[in-house]
Design a protein around this nucleic acid. Structure first.
Lengths: 344, 344
DNA sequence: TATGTATCTGCAATCGTTTGCAGACGAAAG
DNA sequence: CTTTCGTCTGCAAACGATTGCAGATACATA
């Protein structure tokens, strides 16, 4: 009487006087079972309080109906939105999602891969840490052949299935917009270049500068984790420069907010003396005063795409030799923090 | 050659010329196995590319090492923080967390419980939807005897294991603070009372009013999902009143922000003419101008508590007849949105 | 030599499903 | 009456680990 014995299909079989195989088939609506018996079996199951054991099924059929996901942290609103989209979409396929957080640690990330593989996930979805450099842990052999899909933060210089926002375009659009507002000394506060998204945005930034024939100035560009402290630090050095910048393109909204704070504390007027743009368009951008120009990434779109792709890969495990890459659109949202004339 | 055959302990046994049982024990550091053989086995495992099959182990031992969690949505920053704390803590116990979102739908919530039970979770952690009224789905029998711990949003009038913030105190402190600022017509924008937290906060609100001998005025109190649209609506009716309120105690920060927006659009000066408080202290409260008074709930503390409690319950499955309830502290964070005199 | 003890290892059943194959049955066709 | 077919059902072997129990080995002791 320690643990109440689980009710199994065996019990049902006994109850209705049939074999376990028929019961199994009846419960899963196998076409070879008559409607009549199906009903009988299902009623008995209900009556006995039967609970399906997905573990046993997964073991036997080696289909766990589970996808693993590793993400730096779920508290970033963009990530939360993507994950939710993925999860909802996967549910429509009858698949569950196992969510793990790497907390930006490549070591933990590695451990989590092992963990997920041990739980026999049928697919793996990953947005890497800022510092992931060794992608071999995601190799087909390393993950036992299960399909891997990356999104947002993806391996650099390595063929893989991936869905990314159009980071280059985002970086380009922000920069171009600032240039069009008349800015010429545009600072760029970026994350580490070991992370794909920052690399791409930097390229977009450079491209726009180039187009406007403004030389790339290293003293205006910073690379570090984009939290408040680091960003304030960068502002500090930035404004110690002989020549102050007239715009800052920060690579996320947290950093943009920090720039605003710095400006406020140092009597720099935004957008008049300094224009500021963020990235990711999180909800804080429109609460801030001034409202912050940012780039919408359509996380829902990305999430749906990721879910579809991984399901595709699972269902056609055959000769998958080529890699699929999808780029989702981005949209520059212009707000007061970068606009010369105030809109009415 | 369809799917590359998995390497099992059987293969290892063959490799090192031992029985599977010894291999199994060696891998799990069983004390009856000599260090020497353990090493040999582990090396062989490494060499063959062995991957532990947690499914098989879970089935056999009926210990899945997995806890299920059902939460309305992970995109609420408070929830994300609690979940992260829970997950990290559980990892230290060697347990995994399976996260599902009920999306505020009691039906989906019910489905998810079934799903989690099917995956043989050893425990269940729940923060209910706003509208969950039928708690029988969480009954010991309904969940096959696995322990259930509620947090934040918990069943009303039903004994259960739970960890909640001190909502009553939070509601009381906010209201008292507003009263002390000289407010007398304090509106209260609350969530539906089917949800424990709002019920408690309302009680705190009433208690403070009572203490200041201000009668409870129904026309100042609203119950609805706390999104922007609903809140604006409530403000509309609120300010159509013959006598306008001089303060609004909104039950979350999204609602408080909406109130600020309404005030701004209608030329109502905050905090001069109207004081506004939120709840949950999400990051937007200090970005908003004016900054918004709110209540910190210490999600990390709550998460750790939840994880510890569920592990306790799992480890002492024996005669658990009594229910444990823990209340975590809250702290009123006073900001400009409710302060009469501006701090320097 | 027999016995005891400590340490290590193996046998085989078991967890709850799924599934290939074969069998049973009745009806229709020859 | 046999044959054939279609429809439904059952047998029994998996899936990959864990674990109670018994057995083996080595060594010391009686």
């Amino acid at each position: 009487m320690k643990k109440q014995q689980q009710v199994t299909i065996k019990d049902i079989a006994l109850e209705v006087g049939m074999s376990v195989s028929s019961v199994s088939r009846a419960l899963s609506d196998h076409p070879h079972i008559s409607e009549e018996t199906k009903l009988k079996v299902k009623n008995a199951a209900e009556k006995l309080g039967y609970r399906y054991n997905a573990l046993a099924a997964a073991l036997r059929s080696s289909r766990s109906k589970t996808i693993g996901l590793i993400v730096p942290r779920i508290s970033m609103s963009f990530q939360a939105a993507v994950i939710t989209a993925i999860q909802n979409k996967l549910h429509t396929y009858g698949y569950n999602l196992m969510i793990f957080q790497s907390n930006e640690s490549p070591e933990l990330e590695k451990t989590l891969i092992k963990l997920l593989m041990a739980t026999q996930v049928e697919g793996l979805i990953v947005s890497t840490t800022l510092y992931t450099k060794d992608y071999s842990v995601f190799d087909k052999t390393a993950v036992g052949g299960v399909p891997v899909v990356f999104y947002d933060r993806v391996p650099i210089d390595k063929a893989c299935h991936k869905i990314v926002g159009d980071e280059f375009s985002g970086g380009y659009q922000v920069t171009r917009h600032l240039l069009e507002q008349g800015c010429t000394r545009i600072a760029h506060i970026s994350g580490p270049l070991s992370c794909s998204i920052y690399l791409q945005r930097l390229n977009g930034y450079k491209d726009a500068l180039n187009e406007f024939q403004i030389p790339y100035d290293e003293s205006l560009v910073f690379f570090h984790e984009l939290n408040k402290e680091n960003t304030l630090q960068s502002c500090e050095t930035l404004f110690k420069n002989k020549q102050a910048p007239d715009a800052v393109f920060a690579c996320n909204d947290t950093a943009a907010l920090a720039v605003l704070e710095f400006a406020r504390e140092n009597g720099i007027s935004v957008p008049k003396d300094l224009k500021v743009s963020g990235y990711a368009n999180d909800s804080r951008t429109e609460i801030s005063r001034p409202e912050i120009t940012s780039v919408e990434q359509f996380p829902h779109l990305m999430g749906e795409g990721v879910a579809k792709l991984i399901m595709d890969l699972i269902h056609n495990q055959d000769n998958q030799r080529s890699f699929l890459s999808l780029t989702t659109p981005v949209e520059l949202i212009k707000r007061t923090s970068t606009l010369s004339e105030q809109p009415s």
